[in-house]
Design a protein around this nucleic acid. Structure first.
Lengths: 265, 265
DNA sequence: TGTACATCAGTGAACGCGCGTTCACTGATGTAC
DNA sequence: TGTACATCAGTGAACGCGCGTTCACTGATGTAC
């Protein structure tokens, strides 16, 4: 778990008077209670799957009555939103940690990021389902919620590790089928903190890579590749290495003589 | 819908006396009722999502009482199983139809298959979620169910379109990172009607390709790529074309002078 | 062709369950003076 | 330091709802003789 996690996802109803002031005893207890509720909910999801989540079950496992939960979350939907937000955050944390853990410069940080993604998903299959599976019954996700932020955080990591060291010119000249003018235009209109700072071909490539990584993990987590059993990590690693090499082969060397940072085995 | 569909997924409790004998009036009515129930259930899933499926809701939309459904399905689980089986079948049908529709030999049948997969998923997002999303609450999937069959049918299509015309030697020599002995052994032990007839590197490649295709479709169906909005079909097509070319580039030409069937633009 | 009987589709009534949410309350914790 | 008051965490009781499943039944359809 991330050190920054406590409090970051806490939906305290009225914001504390001074944001940076030290928390009072009551506030600390409240925050602890919120964490306890989230943990119990995650545990329940881990046992019964995301679609069995209910306030009553969470309350039961905490040894309290349901009504008490309403002091912390105005409704079930708000609890679900907090859980989804936290799952996105934890996943992004896991990816970041995996990237940071690469000491050997001969190893690919991009593959490490993908493996971090997979490892979190496999370790937390039900929470992965919570964010990437079918939406929960009756749950209406808040539009433009805080989840967007975690998603962007993660896509920024992948953008950096996949394209770091390459110039815009190189990326724009990537050897992929031509994009239609309408698509180019749409991709250029993306927000800069999304993928908008990349030239359109690079956006297409990163979406494709994201799909590739995500698809392999999804199939595994949802049990569709159980026939390869214990070797899914190896298949995943090979696929990601191959993907990375194929992507970099399609990106031309930088102008001039010197090549930019190239894919590593 | 496939012509072979009527009856193929019908879970009539006692099998009709002679399998190929013409159906009696009663049997035809029964089969029609089963189809009506499945349709109503699919419609309900389409409106409310797979996780809201309930016998009572289906009965309500048919204008009958719940209890009547128990004449056709012994329990909710059996209805769900029939729906999942039918979804797999319909998806496999859609892929097959898409492949068969390719008249121009200059077009890639593999890309057409992938586009058929995507198109069905986008047209039936909730049914796609039913088979590839989180399992339904309290639903215990039958082990070794008839779904396995449809999955194999589909993987056979992809196997044919991806590797058709290539020799075992070529596939075995595919240029991908070396597989561990344990993995090779496991892949060689797969059943022949699964992917067992392929050399291990080819199995790794097809799993990777499946993940790639499936991941892009999943992300779209579950709403995670809504920011590229209306152009997902184009991004998908480009990704699949690129994937196909990259795969074929890694497979060496056949022994002797003549090259086997090569990727088509 | 007629009749007795079996099969089947469907209903009415009821079961026990878990759910989210609301209301009025109690007692403990913290704050202002 | 003491006291009056506000805030807060939690409970008891209850609401209306939808769910899967069972039971005993009725009337229609089909079959055997």
């Amino acid at each position: 778990m991330s050190p920054a996690e406590a409090g970051s996802t806490v939906p305290t109803s009225p914001a504390p008077p001074a944001p940076s002031a030290p928390l009072t005893l009551r506030e600390r207890r409240r925050a602890a209670a919120v964490q306890e509720i989230l943990s119990a909910a995650e545990e329940h999801i881990g046992r019964e799957g995301p679609h069995s989540l209910s306030l009553r079950a969470v309350a039961r496992s905490l040894g309290m009555t349901v009504q008490a939960l309403y002091h912390y979350f105005p409704s079930r939907d708000d609890l679900v939103t907090a859980l989804i937000t936290k799952a996105y955050d934890d996943l992004a944390d896991a990816v970041q940690v995996a990237v940071d853990a690469v000491a050997d410069p001969g190893l690919s940080r991009m593959v490490a990021a993908a493996e971090g993604y997979r490892r979190w998903a496999v370790a937390n299959p039900e929470r992965f389902q919570l964010i990437y599976g079918a939406p929960l019954r009756h749950y209406a996700a808040p539009t433009d919620g805080p989840t967007t932020q975690a998603v962007r955080r993660m896509s920024a990591i992948f953008e950096r590790e996949l394209f770091g060291g390459l110039t815009t010119q190189q990326l724009a000249a990537a050897d992929i089928p031509p994009l239609s003018p309408a698509l180019r235009e749409e991709l250029e209109r993306l927000p800069p903190d999304g993928l908008g700072s990349l030239p359109p071909p690079a956006v297409a490539i990163i979406l494709s890579a994201w799909g590739h990584m995500h698809g392999l993990v999804s199939l595994e987590v949802f049990g569709h590749t159980s026939f390869v059993d214990t070797h899914q990590a190896e298949i995943f690693r090979i696929a990601m290495h191959t993907m990375l090499a194929d992507i970099h082969r399609r990106i031309p060397p930088a102008d001039g003589a010197a090549r930019a940072r190239r894919p590593r085995p």
